[in-house]
């Protein structure tokens, strides 16, 4: 129950922050009262009210029914954190190392995360999948994939 309540609270705080921010939008004559802040304030108010009601109903239900769920959550959150971390590392480094190497990091990381254990399978397939994607989208579909810097940039020109 606590996890779900925290999620409700986080969404509520975020909406409150956006609601306060909306008052800083400049007021122009175009549209009169229906300026840029009007609609966001309407939907944010609705959202906050709904979240409050949902949270109250959750508290009323009590915590007994949620114990089993709570135990599973911890395992899932570790998995989520690891997966997100792999993705974040690849995304943060993509401007330096380019798409090819970032794609390799993602494939390698997730293959291990998803249960692959044979080293040669992981090594070969991570390189092959990253190469296929770079060729398919970078060369044939002409998507301007990030190239990275220095040597990574130079290598990327041979592939896409």
């Amino acid at each position: 129950m606590f996890g779900e309540l925290i999620f409700h609270a986080l969404l509520f705080v975020l909406m409150m922050f956006l609601f306060i921010t909306s008052f800083s939008f400049p007021i122009l004559n175009i549209g009169g009262k229906l300026g840029a802040a009007w609609w966001p304030q309407v939907v944010l108010t609705l959202g906050m009210v709904l979240l409050l009601v949902s949270a109250i109903l959750l508290i009323r239900k009590g915590r007994a029914a949620f114990d089993e769920k709570e135990r599973i959550e911890k395992k899932e959150i570790i998995s989520l954190a690891t997966s997100s971390l792999i993705f974040i590392v690849a995304l943060l480094s993509i401007r330096t190392i380019g798409f090819l190497v970032s794609a390799w990091i993602i494939v390698l990381g997730f293959m291990i995360q998803l249960g692959a254990r044979k080293v040669w399978v992981i090594a070969v397939s991570s390189v092959v999948i990253a190469l296929i994607f770079s060729l398919l989208f970078g060369r044939f579909m002409m998507v301007s994939l990030p190239r990275g810097m220095g040597i990574f940039r130079a290598i990327s020109y041979y592939i896409y």
């Binding site: 995304l91 794609a103 993602i106 494939v107 997730f110 998803l114 999948i129």
Partner: peptide, 25 residues
């Protein structure tokens, strides 16, 4: 394919699918 092949392929499709919208990270 086994999910440990499928998963990374899906992730890269997700990556390119989002990126190619406006060539923006």
């Amino acid at each position: 394919l086994k999910y440990y092949f499928q998963g990374p392929v899906i992730l890269l499709l997700c990556f390119v699918g989002s990126y190619a919208l406006s060539n923006d990270l």
